[in-house]
């Protein structure tokens, strides 16, 4: 057998080195938006209209969990606009000096709702029904790091239900997982956002959380201090809070803020 290893090595190494050469990260007409994954659909729709009206500006998205997106910006990722699913990650960036407090604007709001599967017989008719012994499993986002779970815990605590339901809770690693648990009937109820409930035909809303039972669910948009295209980021934020942007947000079930 011929010694083929050096040959394989050279063939594979050349493109590897080529990929490592320097290249300017982002052209100046591009706006890189790091956004909470739950905003995927509504932001794509907003992007289509915005790009049509603002040629040649292009929006590029980086969708992920708000916590991970925060870490990336903190470590200097070249992000122009950060749209988070709660105020906590943006507040943390303001504290650490990656975002100036004046560069934060709230673009949308949401509701916290209690849902159950549409296909199984209705077991839960109110928040209080979560106490019942037939309700054995309730899905919420992991309150350690999933914003919807933090709101969920807050609601359960304010309603005085936490001690009764704590042992029944099943944690989802994101709000979509909570939705899937409820859709599949594996749990009797779950706590998600109004927009998630509206996106699925397999679940029904039992009741929204009373307004005073949790901090308002808002989506802040923040322009990092190191943004390369702060002007583009500001233009996109302006679009989102314009009447056109509000119409798109409303279409996907989000509340808007004045």
């Amino acid at each position: 057998m011929k010694p083929i290893a050096p040959f394989v090595l050279v063939v594979l190494l050349v493109p590897a080195l080529a990929a490592c050469k320097a290249r300017p990260a982002i052209p100046p007409t591009e706006v890189l938006v790091s956004a909470a994954a739950s905003l995927t659909d509504v932001l794509r729709e907003a992007q289509r209209q915005f790009e049509a009206e603002n040629k040649p500006v292009k929006i590029r998205f980086n969708f992920g969990s708000s916590g991970a997106l925060q870490q990336q910006i903190e470590k200097g990722a070249p992000v122009d606009l950060f749209i988070a699913a709660s105020t906590a990650p943006v507040d943390a960036l303001v504290r650490k000096g990656s975002v100036s407090a004046t560069a934060v604007r709230v673009i949308a709001s949401n509701e916290v709702v209690l849902i159950q599967s549409a296909s199984t017989p209705a077991l839960v008719r109110s928040w209080d029904d979560l106490r019942q012994s037939q309700v054995t499993k309730i899905a919420i986002g992991n309150p350690e790091h999933v914003p919807a779970g933090m709101y969920g815990r807050e609601v359960l605590e304010r309603l005085g239900l936490w001690p009764a339901v704590e042992r029944k809770l099943v944690f989802g690693e994101d709000v979509r997982q909570v939705l899937h648990f409820v859709e599949s009937g594996e749990v009797q109820a779950g706590i998600v956002y109004g927009t998630d409930a509206a996106s699925s035909k397999k679940v029904t809303v039992v009741a929204p959380a009373p307004a005073a039972s949790h901090a308002p669910v808002v989506y802040p948009a923040a322009i990092p201090i190191d943004a390369r295209n702060a002007a583009g980021a500001k233009a996109f934020t302006d679009f989102l809070i314009s009447p056109k942007g509000k119409a798109i947000l409303g279409k996907f079930g989000f509340g808007t803020v004045d």
């Binding site: 590897a16 990929a19 490592c20 320097a22 300017p24 990260a25 890189l32 980086n62 990336q72 470590k75 200097g76 990722a77 070249p78």
Partner: peptide, 15 residues
Amino acid sequence: RLWGASLIFTPTAAV
């Protein structure tokens, strides 16, 4: 220092 940019958010970082 080499090319005035970080690798974060590049395919090289994924590699």
